[in-house]
Design a protein around this nucleic acid. Structure first.
Lengths: 250, 250
DNA sequence: TCGGAGTGCTGGTATTGACCACTTGGCGCC
DNA sequence: GGCGCCAAGTGGTCAATACCAGCACTCCGA
């Protein structure tokens, strides 16, 4: 725990006790209070400003900012995503089998086409309603003994971390519009050819190995992507998955 | 021009002359070369690392990184977006009329329902191929005398800035999957009910006024959203519009 | 020849001190 | 009472210095 992260955490606690628009103590004051140098305080505040918790006003002070409309799109699993939105995520494993990766999947996972690979098809629910259908592909060697039941009990990423000691370090996700086919429509309970998002994600672990390739179909009538746009300044354009509760969310 | 931004620029020049994977001089060396403190060099490098130009390796050095797959999604117009990808953006104004805002649009634009509003429908092309169809809504008072031809000659945001003195300060964009209707299919030259992205964007100027509401339909077969995912650490998840040149882009 | 310890580099963190640019509010003058 | 100026406080920037932790290479001894 560096002083900087410690300072960051202490400031976050401060923020929790304040309301939007209120000023936090000055950098000089904080450096005295916490017993660290002002630069350390600044570094911690820098981070919080980047994350949208604080707003600096030169000559005036540093203030608690509006909660960001669009939160960071971090490396979240479906489970975390739903929890963050106060919904209860569940999962039904429709199918789980181990098959050779094949050419295309082998390329994605960076393994031999003959490599045994777990292919799991899951229906993802939020508060009991269908939200997405997901097909997971993982080299079997990474997750020996994985069962369909395992996937229903906890987040796959939690499982990866706790049972197999694998932590996800990053990934890349591609999003396209699509329409549901017969199988997807039936599983999701929506009309045939309903608009949907197709997510394709490849994740890699901290040692650089490709861990999974996931293909998900999200209901277009329940999901929207919202991104906040900022001009010029390379601040961050932060998109987020937002559940459409009723008809619209503005 | 602060020393930090100056240092940043000089390092960027350095990067241009190097290839991916090569090391830049050490922080201490740069601070001597540029005649600034190491702290200043670090701050400049911090920014470049955040933007994805450089990668630090403790004990080893700082290296030129792969160009980021996902660039920042800044407040871009279609025009800027296409230019950044090396394509030539053009525009055909299909229709332009001034009508009362009405209830729904008035709410979006934060004006009275009877407020005269420019509604312009444009076909957006990239390298001569249809890419999107866009319907622009702007209070007429903000852009008096706007013609359909104006919109074909330059970016609307450039026009706003140069002729009307309005600069866009931010906005929020919502993205959904949809399918094209008859009119859209015909205009875009795709089959009826083709998958497409629906973008709805509301932009505000620096003085807080809502400037525009834009509704765009992007061809799903030519557009994909790519977002790079980073775990835990609230670095930035940066999504971007990526043109699908051929069949796939991986 | 091979392996391991040592050493000199790298970036990572932290401190102290200083000055600048800007905001704000109070004080004094009109 | 109102206006304008000025001082105090704020964040923004920068310097010089120190020590820590990780990496890679060299050199020496087995």
């Amino acid at each position: 725990m560096t002083k900087q992260t410690e300072t960051r955490d202490r400031v976050l606690e401060l923020i929790d006790r304040l309301t939007v628009g209120q000023a936090i103590p000055s950098e000089r004051q904080l450096s005295v209070d916490f017993g660290v140098s002002r630069l350390t305080v600044r570094a911690a505040l820098d981070e919080l400003v980047r994350e949208g918790h604080l707003i600096r006003r030169r000559g005036s002070g540093t203030f608690v900012s509006e909660p960001k409309i669009a939160q960071e799109l971090t490396m979240t699993s479906f489970t975390e995503d739903m929890r963050r939105r106060g919904m209860r995520p569940t999962s039904q494993t429709i199918d789980l089998r181990v098959v050779p990766a094949g050419a295309r999947l082998g390329r994605f996972l960076n393994v031999s086409p003959s490599e045994p690979t777990v292919v799991a098809k899951r229906l993802r629910l939020a508060d009991g309603e269908t939200m997405a259908i997901e097909t997971l592909h993982v080299p079997n060697a990474l997750v020996p003994g994985l069962t369909g039941k395992d996937l229903e009990l906890q987040s796959f990423y939690e499982l990866l971390s706790e049972r197999y000691g694998i932590t996800i370090a990053g990934g890349i996700q591609q999003i396209e519009p699509t329409v549901t086919n017969e199988e997807e429509s039936e599983a999701l309970g929506v009309p045939l050819h309903s608009p949907a998002f197709l997510f394709e994600r490849t994740s890699r672990s901290s040692d650089g190995k490709t861990v999974e390739f996931v293909r998900s179909i999200y209901r277009g009538d329940r999901y929207v992507l919202v991104s906040e746009l900022t001009p010029q300044t390379p601040r961050t354009g932060v998109p987020v998955l937002t559940v459409r509760d009723d008809g619209r969310v503005y």
